[in-house]
Design a protein around this nucleic acid. Sequence first.
DNA 1: ATTGTATATATAAGTTGTTTATATATTACA
DNA 2: TGTAATATATAAACAACTTATATATACAAT
Lengths: 114, 114
Amino acid sequence: MIQSDLIKGSLKTIVLKLLDENGRMYGYEITRKVEELTDGKIKLTYGALYPVLHKLESEGVLVTESENFNNRTRIYYLLTPHGHSVVTEKIKEMTEFIGSLQRIIDTKPGLSYA
Amino acid sequence: MIQSDLIKGSLKTIVLKLLDENGRMYGYEITRKVEELTDGKIKLTYGALYPVLHKLESEGVLVTESENFNNRTRIYYLLTPHGHSVVTEKIKEMTEFIGSLQRIIDTKPGLSYA
DNA sequence: ATTGTATATATAAGTTGTTTATATATTACA
DNA sequence: TGTAATATATAAACAACTTATATATACAAT
């Protein structure tokens, strides 16, 4: 987990984007997916993930579906119609933010961070 | 200031990068520069900026040079040799982080956030 | 048998990094 | 005369994390 402090603020957007793309996911699955997509560079902690999921549920951004799998409870999360519009907004913001960051760290001739 | 929560964690890297590129800068100048580079999308608050600068100074990442300009005090901040190696590390982390974020929000066919 | 790893969710306490509010002071323009 | 721009600073409040802890099943290895 190299980018421990960089992740701050982007967790919610990451979760929403994955749910939008995969229809429905359970918490553990979300952490696996993020690790997979980032080659292990981003590892979500459950202490951060579950409170975020619960908060999004209380805000009406997503709903849950409990299911039993191999004697373990799985709680699937899926976006509400309102959730879909939230994702759209969040992805736009993040895209803009990434663009801004890139403009700032864009290396001028004479500097190298390789 | 659209990306209020996204900025969390990246402020330090932004400051270090600007100092590395511009030799030395004073606090107010840093906020102007960030606004300029991001078309006003990222506005640093002084309540966040100055504590970060003071902390970096106490850590030996940067040193200060006080000067008087038009009867106003300007405190220039510049990187120490140790500071330069910190920048290198931070930029690498941020570059990796941005890459990870992009892989996550990379839109698959059928989805659109335009 | 039992230890360890993977699967699965959850919360409380503590820490960190912000925002907001406030303070001070000069210059320049209307 | 007051408002915007320039310039730094700190305290209080808040939000978002990490760390620690708890619980429980399945499966593989020793």
